[in-house]
Structures are given as C-alpha cells and as structure tokens.
Amino acid sequence: MSDSIIRFEKVSFHYKAEQPVLKQIDLSIRSGEFIALIGGNGSGKTTLAKHCNGLYKPTDGAVYVEGRDTREVSVAELSRIVSYCYQNPDHQIFQSTIGEEVAFGPSNLGLAKAEIEERVTQALEAVGLLPYREEEPYFVSKGTRQKIAVASILAMKPRVIVLDEPTTGLDHRGVMEMMALIQSLHRQGHTILAITHDMRLVAEYAQRVLVLHKGEIVCDGEPRHVFAQTNALSLAQVEPPAVSRFAQALGLTPLPLTLAELQDRLVKELT
C-alpha cells in the first residue's frame, strides 16, 4: 500500500532454527494508525515490535521502513523514524537528571545545541514533566519513569512510536494518564504501535488490533471485529473485555466495546 510506513514481507525470525518465533509475517502499518498488538506469553509480540526499527533483523523475508530495508540502514538512523519504548523504563534510563536523559537521544543525532534544547523542552512539556527537568530520574514513581522514557523517545521526533506494555505495573490513575498521553501523541500525527495485555485499553483506544499466536497474525482488524472472533481469541489466550463478553452473551451485534456504548444499546433494547 502506498501510504504504508512499515512493511513486513514474509518475515520469519528464530533464535534456534527449530523454534521459529515469527512465521512468514506479512504486515503493512500505515501512517497515522493506532495499533494494539496482543497475544499470549511467548506469542512473538516483542520480537515483532523490535523488528519495526531494526533492533531485530528478519532471519527470512524483509522489513521496510519508509521503503528502506532495515538490514541496510543503521538502528540509529531508523530510530529517527521509529522509536521503541521498553517495557521496563529502567532498561533505558541512565542519566543523572531527567533533562539529560531526554537530551541523550537527540544529542546523538548530531543536532545543534539550540535544537536539542528545544526538543527536550517540547518533549518534557508533552508528558507534563517540564518542572522536573533537573530532578534525578530514579527516585520517582514508576508512572513518572514511564513518562520519562516516552519523553526520551519524543525528543527523537519519530513518526512511529512503539510501546511495549506502557501501563504494566501502574495504578488506575497512572494507566489513564499514560493512555491520555499516548492518545494525544496519536492526535498530533504519530503512528502508534502498542503491546498490551489490557483489553479494556485496546477496546477504548486502538483503531486496529493485531492478534499474534505462535508467531503468526491470527486476527487483524478493528477492535469491534476482532473481539467478536471468540474462537481465534481463545486459541491465542486472549480474553475480550468484560463489556464485550457480556454483550456477546446477549447476542448484541455490532459488539459494544465500552460501558458507555453498551448502556446506549441497552437503553434502546429496554424501551
């Protein structure tokens, strides 16, 4: 497709030949999409995500980012276009102030000081941490460390942001804040690919869902369509959100995804 920003062509990947992690994946990620990548433990989610910016290279097939084969471009070069946010923010935080942490990426791009300064300010502002620029990044809550990790990525001004379980370990308010941040990045034009186990978030935020099972994409579509595929989901060890399960038992189609949608439908059914 012409507007695809990342394209997987028959991508296979293995650490050991007898244990393929990804099998012949064909996938096109279009500019501006908000995609959730879901699936059970060991289904290949993180491996697939790490192919998007060349952190992993396919054993077979090819991944193209803006039309360029990821095997032929450095990760540093690719990270200007696609940035990867680790599941555990502590795996990427290592500077002594929050400001320095966020400046690290753009500094490595060889940008002018003023440009770096501007990017750091913008990125910290976007995640609501500008007042904490001079603080140490270690002694803050996990939610805040997660935001620092996102800011570090924003400072690279990537077109695509890949997030590996951005809400794991956060409390409910932390989850809502992180999702509001990701949604606002999406509205500003970033393409989002997020790995998550939280199906309520998938239902509420994602435009497209990829279900991975044993290294293959077994479902690909809008959440409403995907959450109705109960057999494929149960095979992939994915349980749709409570609202969808309840609506399915009532035989409601198209499937409501959120409580508000379900209430709207019930009002009609009950009157």
């Binding site: 309520r200 409570a242 409580l259 379900l262 209430q263």
Partner: peptide, 11 residues
C-alpha cells in the same frame, strides 16, 4: 480515589 470500579459492577 482513583480506583478502577469493574464495568459489570457499574452496569
């Protein structure tokens, strides 16, 4: 208090 109330309870 920032606590998630399950959707079925709210329903």
């Amino acid at each position: 208090e920032g606590i998630f109330v399950p959707d079925m309870i709210k329903l």
